[in-house]
Nucleic acid binder design. Structure first.
Lengths: 204, 204
DNA sequence: TGTCTGAATGATCAACGAATTCTTCAGCGC
DNA sequence: GCGCTGAAGAATTCGTTGATCATTCAGACA
């Protein structure tokens, strides 16, 4: 059993090494297999397809993200500050990763194309931490009461969509992005403090 | 003088007819010229290049948009309602256009690729109407005072980025999009009513 | 029996010449 | 001169062909 996960890890690591260096398209299954001293066919006992390796890569990346989100959500700071820190960390983490290895942008693109639902998973996970922060903020009296926390989290994610897709922001510097992110958050946080009247059709 | 603009209009119209039907890539300069009873070379006395025809198409589309924005901005309604109407109209107008002729999505893509700055023009134009509505709202006491109206307009545009690019939203139904748009606007409007504290670095 | 290989298969990609298309411009008719 | 054409040139796309690659699987090995 541990053998299996070990081999899987080994494949994943070999794949990541090649992919961050040469890109997803230029990395072949035979090369990955060669690095692991096995045949290409054997990889398929551990990953159903090449795109699944990319997905595993992204999952590993996200895991780091979620851990930090969890930490930030638990921090002893006002809710608005934690909200800012979550999104600023997410932006910085992705931006730095792309700056370091430009090839991972290709991974993101391939994944968006071939596993569109994968991103929803990440959004749902992120919402868990957002909900937590929002509820804390309401409990502390920093935010006005919220009827539907998940709905508000979704709307916050929607408003910050621009800072999530490297293809949308890759022209801007990180400093500019952060400033813009905080500008949008200024408005959102003001709204949360005051209390949001939800449009009739959106009430649940 | 009027001859010149007439011929230009004729070319533009012929081009639009073909492009909405067959797409930008599948429409050739000779075909457009043929429809106008002229040679391909002659088109270049009216348009510097093929992509300029696409830009002219988009400009015509935007002109309609701006006229309606201007009307909405002038309406005798509360500022929040006008804000909603501007963005809802923009979304609906684009959505309907694409639904009617799917080929215009290609025009948008080519334009985004080859004339990336063109979109900034549109954003700047839209901000004129947003600024107007925001200032009205402040004057009427509906919105709290705003230090930098243009900055707030920019942040609103940033938060509503998702509803601007068909490539981002083309999977969702118009009804869902409108609901989500109004959800984000719920938060933004709440923030504007309450008053937005601008993060230190963003103060001008 | 459980692992793994390596050949077979079909899909995708790259290369490259041919064809099409965009763009320019010398010159023609008015 | 003015407005336009049509041929020439440059750039791009297209279609074909050969190679590479992802994926499968029968069977070898242990």
């Amino acid at each position: 059993m541990n053998d299996k996960t070990d081999t899987r890890q080994q494949i994943l690591e070999a794949a990541m090494n090649r992919i961050v260096h040469y890109g997803y398209g230029k990395t072949t299954m035979s090369e990955i297999a060669g690095d692991c001293g096995m045949s290409a066919g054997n990889i398929y006992r551990f990953f159903a397809s090449k795109i699944d390796i990319a997905e595993a890569m992204a999952r590993k990346f996200n895991l780091e993200l979620y851990q930090t989100y969890a930490e930030i959500a638990r921090e002893d700071r006002p809710a608005p500050e934690r909200l800012r820190r979550v999104f600023e960390y997410g932006l910085t983490h992705s931006y730095d990763a792309i700056e370091k290895d430009a090839k991972i942008l290709e991974v993101a693109e391939v994944l968006q194309e071939e596993r569109p639902l994968f991103f929803n998973e990440g959004l749902a996970q992120e919402r868990i931490y957002l909900n937590q922060i929002l509820e804390d903020g309401v409990a502390a009296g920093t935010f006005a009461p919220i009827t539907d926390t998940t709905f508000i989290s979704e709307m916050i994610q929607s408003a910050l969509m621009k800072f999530r897709f490297p293809q949308l922001y890759s022209l801007l510097t990180l400093a500019k992005l952060k400033r813009e992110l905080n500008g949008v958050l200024d408005i959102i946080i003001a709204g949360l403090k005051h209390g949001v009247d939800i449009t009739a059709e959106n009430k649940r």
